[in-house]
Amino acid sequence: MTAIQTRVLDASPSAAKARRFGAWYVAEHRLRVMRSYVSTVVIGAIGTPLLYLIAMGVGLGHLVGSTPIDGVSYLQFVAPALMCSAAVTVASEEFTYPVLSGFKWNPTFIGISSSPITPGQIIDGMVISVIVRAFVTSVIYWVIILFFGAMTVGVSALSVIVATLVGLAFGIPIMTYIATLERDTGQIAMVMRLVLLPLTLFSGTFFPLTSMPVYLQWIGWISPIWHGTQLARVLAYGAQVPGWLIVVHVLFLLALIVPFWWLSRRIAKRRLTA
């Protein structure tokens, strides 16, 4: 026979801790879930940069030849962009299926909201966990880039933070959209094909934005990937970008992160407290 060990828990510290650290508990939960597919995460985080850097450096770089692009080698030009795009891929995974799942398929968010945690904290926890995964992915990318000699130790380390921000700027608005869905009738696949892919291709990732026809360049201007990539290039090899444009890049990223984060919290609250 088993008696439950009953300890009289004073509930007020419990609630106080939840109010203060709730988002971290949610992030802890998410990271534990990620651990169940950790091999995919790690293989992706190491394999992707290796494949891309080899393909770009040896293959495409060879084709482009030794003509400098933006004043540097092709590999140096493309490396910061690849790192940003890896963070974006992470964000596009974590802010789509897990979000709709949490509300609908395996409604863990409903379970969490019967604890002291608030809907807003659930969203915050999702964001924190993506920051962790995107950051780790970017750090691994950076280290591999160093091995390829496409960056040097120093200020370039900060590009890891920029890449993480790009991931958030791309992923948080998508989370906002996904949070409004009742079911997935192809919307997530559509986001991947009609948003992720074109933005990656036309954001100055593989060639400078200015080398595209003017009527396509606007895509870069509305793309967090371009704004972030340019910032990362400044940090990686001192790309020449006027000061005002650097400010625009930073503001653009923040303009996607802050309001959509707030909006996601609102939607989660409306949905979970209905």
Binding site: A11, S12, R19, G22, N106, P107, I110, G111, S114
Partner: peptide, 17 residues
């Protein structure tokens, strides 16, 4: 949060992770 800290909830539809 103060109330939920003192409740146990078994919902109609399971939402285990």
């Amino acid at each position: 949060p103060e109330i939920r800290a003192q409740l146990g909830v078994v919902p109609q539809a399971d939402n285990l992770d």
